[in-house]
Design a binder for these strands. Structure first.
Length: 476
RNA sequence: GGCGCAUUCGUCUAGGGGUUUAGGACACCGCCCUCUCAAGGCGGAGAUCACGGGUUCGAAUCCCGUAUGCGCUACCA
């Protein structure tokens, strides 16, 4: 039975890398009809970020990474860890350490200065009974350290990278229980993974170095360790570990920026995993069907926003009109100028959304792509009207247009086109130039959806008003 | 500094000894379509597969070194 877990710590908002790890775990579980467990590793009271756990849960829900068990909170399972610590203490596989943070700090400084590998000097490892009693009496609250073997090797088989071997002499006596009574990651992690019968630990590469500690702890507890696979990391553009200085990294920011969860899902799975030599767009079902550890790459991946944008556009265009409108609505409400009265008219919006849908790469672009459909007064620089023609020609063209269109029988894209094409010729203007003039007059910009379709949606009244206002602008 | 992992176009990747003149995608450039933009179609440029040694009839693919990058080296996860 495959049982995997995603075990984030609520010390910050989940970034792309965290979520990609969650995604791989989820996909692995679903592919194997296994169980996906969510566990919040909130053992660092000092760095805990208010609300982070909720953001983590929301982000997972947003991407549809549903969990079968949990969320468990380690802060509510302290007895479990204390029990393990007691066992290790009793077996003399761990010991209390009374060293002050100051002593540890100066020890490290000294080691650095001498270019020695930093690590706990095992000062408290061999305290005499009397010394221990003395320390206890002094009122110092100790930490508990694991008694690492001084020689030999610790090894395990990483599912992705093969046999990994560490010299025990390079390991120090790491802390397993802090003085505030909370366990460290290392201890809590192995206790819970054992307790929850985790079969595979799929976690980021950054944990590889501490894996031998975990193996040692499993051995000390007399437990069978799970299988390990250390996943490649996701790096920033500068190839370093993802962090705040890389701009938007928290997954919820992408939601706010108008990325579709299904696009994000697809994009993220391809950061470190590939189906074959050409498939880029995969449905969630296809991913579940084909996902396998063997096809996970071993090298860290740089996050490429351009490709995400492209992929999001693909998904956006694949949406049905109604679906697209529904998804775009919150963004229109949020970003359209405040003067535009709400609630927005869905019927009207649905008329031009097909035009916008083809052009948007994110939902957040929808408002700026379509604001001229809403706004009463267009604001633009009159010079835009004068692309390749002079003022007189422009005014003449606009006046002729108004005259021609004022009494037009039916106001549709096709009928408008049959009016304006000949008019361009009459005016001696290339269609590109003439239509460009009209486009600016009607939309206030040089790049917009097809002119006549736009005019049809805008309606006669509004179009004529805008043509007139363009003349005003020129003559002002 | 020590330990560990990694190294194929700018980026994401395919490749698991001969089928490779190293394939695809994003981005980039050009052409087509076209009222602009976008989308789409076609084409192009872009990787001496980090480097150096082996093994082999034959290596991007296996082995060993070197270099570089990243990670860890906390009473953080």
């Amino acid at each position: 039975m495959v049982r995997v877990r995603f075990a984030p710590s609520p010390t910050g908002y989940p970034h792309l890398g965290n979520i990609r790890t969650a995604l791989f775990n989820w996909a692995f579980a679903r592919h194997n009809n296994g169980v996906f467990i969510l566990r919040i590793e909130d053992t660092d009271v000092a760095r805990l970020v208010e609300g982070a756990a909720d953001v983590i849960l929301d982000s997972l829900r947003w991407l549809g990474l549903d969990w079968d068990e949990g969320p468990y909170f380690q802060s509510q399972r302290l007895e479990l860890y204390h029990k393990a610590v007691d066992q290790l203490l009793k077996q003399e596989l761990a010991y209390r350490c009374y060293c002050s943070p100051q002593r540890l700090e100066s020890m490290r400084q000294e080691q650095m200065k001498r270019k020695q590998p930093p690590g706990y000097d095992r000062h408290c490892r061999n305290l005499t009974r009397e010394q221990k009693a003395e320390m206890e009496a002094s009122g110092i609250i100790p930490v508990v350290r694991f008694m690492s073997p001084l020689e030999g090797q610790t090894f395990f088989n990483d599912l992705l990278r093969g046999q990994i071997i560490f010299e025990n002499s390079t390991l120090d006596d790491f802390v397993i229980l802090k003085s505030d009574g909370y366990p460290t990651y290392h201890l809590a992690n192995i206790v819970d993974d054992h307790e929850m019968a985790i079969s595979h630990v799929l976690r980021a590469d950054e944990w590889l170095s501490s894996a031998p500690r975990h193996v040692l702890l499993y051995q000390a507890m007399g437990w069978q360790p799970p299988l390990f696979a250390h996943l490649p990391m996701i790096l920033g553009t500068d190839r370093s570990k993802l962090g705040k200085r890389h701009g938007a990294t928290a997954i919820n920011e992408y939601q706010e920026q108008g990325y579709l969860p299904e696009a994000m899902f697809n994009f993220l799975v391809l950061l470190g995993w590939a189906l074959d030599d050409k498939t880029e767009i995969l449905t969630r079902d296809e991913i579940v069907k084909h996902f396998s550890l063997e096809r996970i790459s071993k090298t860290a991946a740089v996050f490429n926003k351009d490709k995400l944008d492209w992929m999001n556009g693909v998904y956006l265009r694949g949406l049905g009109l109604e679906e697209f409108v529904q998804r775009a609505m919150p963004f229109l409400g949020r970003d359209l100028p405040v003067e535009i009265s709400r609630p927005l008219d869905t019927g009207y919006i649905s008329q031009f959304m097909p035009l916008v849908q083809e052009r948007a790469r994110t939902l957040a672009e929808v408002p700026q792509l379509s604001d001229f459909f809403f706004v009463e007064e267009l604001e633009y620089d009159a010079d835009l009207l004068l692309g390749k023609i002079d003022k007189a020609e422009a005014v003449k063209g606009l006046q002729a247009s108004i005259a021609r269109v004022d009494g037009l029988q039916d106001w549709t894209a096709t009928s408008l086109e049959t009016v304006f094409r000949p008019l361009a010729e009459e005016l001696g203007l290339k269609t590109g130039v003439f239509f460009g003039l009209l486009r600016v007059a009607v939309t206030g910009r040089t790049a917009a959806p097809p002119l006549f379709q736009t005019m049809e949606v805008l309606g006669r009244e509004r179009c004529i008003k805008r043509l007139k206002s363009a003349i005003d602008k020129l003559e002002r």
